[in-house]
Amino acid sequence: MEHLLETIGRNMFAIFGVMTLCGAAFMVASRSAVHSVLGFLFAMLCIAGCFLSLEAEFLGMAQILVYAGGIVVLFLFVVMLVEMSKKREKEVFQLQSRYAVVAVLVGAAVFVGVFRKVIFGAASPEALVLRPELAQGLNVANQNAQAVSRSLFADFLLPFEILSVILLVALVGAVVLAKTERV
């Protein structure tokens, strides 16, 4: 019993990973757009589970809060309003499947190329810390919200702010594009 539970606990990441893949596969394979969104939601929640099994609680919760709670809702909001008849829907999907295969292959190649070292190389003995003096006085295992915030607001403050300005520009741009001519 004890042994079994410990094995499950050690392999939590693999379990969640497989569940993520299942959700993603369901998303790609399903015919109905809303079912796809549900599969996407499941995959997002399982990715949060992956983060949790790696003891990165802050990232896991941010994953749930931002993706599951915010972005997928907006997807759903749009998808619900797009009403396609079954036949047309089918045609669109069949039209896309050829390109989809190519896209998946290219994506897989890029992924393997970028993360070659991480996947096939030896595991790094210590976590990647950019400026070790920032982590002083922090128990990173227990306070990873504080750790993330320190690296975000001390190490990467400028990129962070630039990113948020870019997002704001995109937001304003969307409003300008969507606005009709009436003043």
């Binding site: 939601l41 929640l45 949060a48 609680e57 802050f58 919760m61 941010a62 749930i64 809060l65 599951a68 709670g69 915010g70 809702v73 227990n142 306070q143 990873n144 919200a145």
Partner: peptide, 14 residues
Amino acid sequence: INVGLLWILGVASV
């Protein structure tokens, strides 16, 4: 958990 508030907000938003 040390991010309990985020858990609450996240799950509630689901």
